[in-house]
Design a protein around this nucleic acid. Structure first.
Lengths: 334, 334
DNA sequence: GTGAAAGCGCTAACAA
DNA sequence: TTGTTAGCGCTTTCAC
């Protein structure tokens, strides 16, 4: 069943059917009505492959995320998908599970499907697949990579603003030995966060001790392991800031398993503010990053590059802000 | 850049380029090598729209889920995506947020994109969009709808098997007044679960009291509200089984907010065994439904119908099993 | 206001 | 082993 079949049944040409489907107004209302009736009766759906082939554009954006089981991403996807549906775009999602090879594979698939742009929220970024995108004039919007170029925009996560609030909050609670559990070693995005921590500590007249800075992996087990190391120190931190909420949850679990309490013994601050943060015991103090705002920025950035895939990209930014809940309290005086 | 360009650069015809890309072995190795080099140099990616148009098949399956923020689904998606990538298929995901109109919209998009099949895990099912699928010979695999037909398969969730374990477990702990918090009112899938509860209670010589059976909405707030109602009863249940883990979490929160303890005052049993179930306080006793197994069954069902979209569908089934953790304990004697 | 027809990039049947 | 070519379903220009 194609447009020619519809045309035949409605006694018109396929060109007219196309015009009706695409809502052109230069069709006589009676004719349009007749065509629409046939379409409904036959349950006809136009074939998007033909349209994409014709236009060279698919009205689809690719979305690459590292870990769909981190609640931050489903919450992001929900917002992103809503915007896409509203604007009549399709979303093509892929997960990397933190493997660079999966990023490459995903980008390959997206190039084959002729997506109109890629939103890359994973941090396992290699230059080769990115060059393939740029070379094929497919716009790319990255997260916190802090690099722009032709067809390449970036959304900076202003970790610093929230981090400053967090450190000031802890300082007010008399914390001096503040630890940090970062993300995976390697990706620059992890470095940005760690550097923000160190800089903020300094700005607030506190020392960021080397031994209190550990690496995690953005997941619960990473937080557990890192916290274990911190607990083994002769001189423990009284508060710990984590690179994301899952890491913070892992840290909290370890503390509690050791018979210690949050926040009585150690205060914990997360990052993201996943919905879950509010149902934990104690509820997590965290730096909020708005998923819907982030989704909106990504969409805006993609649209801006869609019409002109080789235009100079932009640097966007999104702020984070402290949400105080139960996982932070006065410093445990030793 | 298309195959003809590649062909020209490699001094062959586009047919040969196509053969090389698709791994046909009737190309002289030297020629193939030359073509491959040109492809690599030009970073060429074939246009899948053309292939889809030609074949009438897209190697894509649609996946419709109700709520991506319910951790069950990301965990399912991860398994499903892995299988898809392994078998060189693409996944086209859509979320309904529990709206029937969004199901319809999603199916529309999938028909337009010519997916080779749809996995429908949402329960907001209306006959119209389903007919559109069948009419267009797009196979459909549903979850626990218990209906099959030409091009229509179903995966039954054997709630009963696990439910029996759960009730026996609670009975052994001396529970007699066992409540149930179900899913949304309406979808038959919710009815199946509730009926399984009632039947199982009866089988075990217990009475499923009407006033102890409440409806939720598969989300945390639904569990909270329903539990509030149960707590308001003059004769409260000593144990509650929930239609999914989020509902169970909501119920637990309400109990704890009221100064009561789980499981000392009331025992809670969930359904799904999301990863989160293990990090709660107390960890949740729940009926496990394997995401990877479920994903495998859906894939198998889709593949079986792909080659013959109008073949008679099959009824598949998946079992659930009890995982005992900390949220169940001896009945509180009143 | 409507139709005829070319062509988007790929595949596969057929020819050489 | 390789090339020629028709055609998948749609859009759009041009003609009427």
């Amino acid at each position: 069943m194609d447009m020619r079949d519809i045309a035949k049944l409605a006694g018109v040409s396929s060109a007219t059917v196309s015009r009706v489907i695409n809502g052109f107004n230069n069709v006589k209302p009676a004719t349009a009505e007749r065509v629409r009736r046939v379409i409904a009766e036959t349950k006809f759906y136009p074939n998007s492959s033909a349209t994409t082939l014709k236009h060279g554009k698919s009205s689809t954006y690719g979305l690459i995320i590292p870990d769909i089981t981190n609640p931050f991403f489903p919450e992001f996807i929900r917002s992103f998908e809503r915007i896409m549906v509203e604007w009549d775009r399709d979303m093509f999602m892929a997960t990397t599970d933190f493997h660079a090879s999966r990023v490459q594979q995903s980008i390959r698939r997206m190039l084959i499907r002729k997506v109109d742009g890629v939103a890359l929220l994973a941090s396992e970024i290699e230059t080769e697949p990115i060059e393939a995108l740029i070379h094929n004039r497919v716009p790319l919007v990255t997260m916190d990579r802090r690099l722009t170029g032709p067809g390449l925009s970036d959304v900076l996560i202003d970790y610093g603003s929230g981090m400053d609030e967090a450190v000031k909050h802890l300082k007010r609670l008399k914390h001096r030995r503040i630890g940090y559990i970062g993300g995976s070693v390697g990706p620059t995005i992890s470095d940005h966060r760690r550097d923000a921590f160190i800089a903020t500590m300094k700005d607030n007249g506190l020392k960021a001790e080397q031994e209190l800075i550990r690496a995690g992996n953005y997941r619960i087990p990473g937080g557990e392991t890192a916290m274990l190391e911190l607990l083994a120190l002769s001189h423990r931190p009284t508060a710990v800031i984590a690179a994301n909420d899952l890491t913070a949850i892992g840290a909290m679990r370890t503390i509690q398993k050791h018979g210690l309490s949050v926040p009585e013994d150690i205060s914990i601050v997360g990052f993201d503010d996943i919905e879950l943060a509010d149902i934990l015991h104690p509820p997590l103090t965290t730096l909020r990053l708005s998923r819907s705002e982030l989704a909106g920025i990504f969409f805006k950035a993609l649209e801006a590059l869609r019409s002109e895939p080789h235009a100079q990209g932009q640097q966007y930014a999104i702020r984070s802000g402290l949400v105080v809940r139960g996982s932070t309290g006065p410093a445990h005086s030793e």
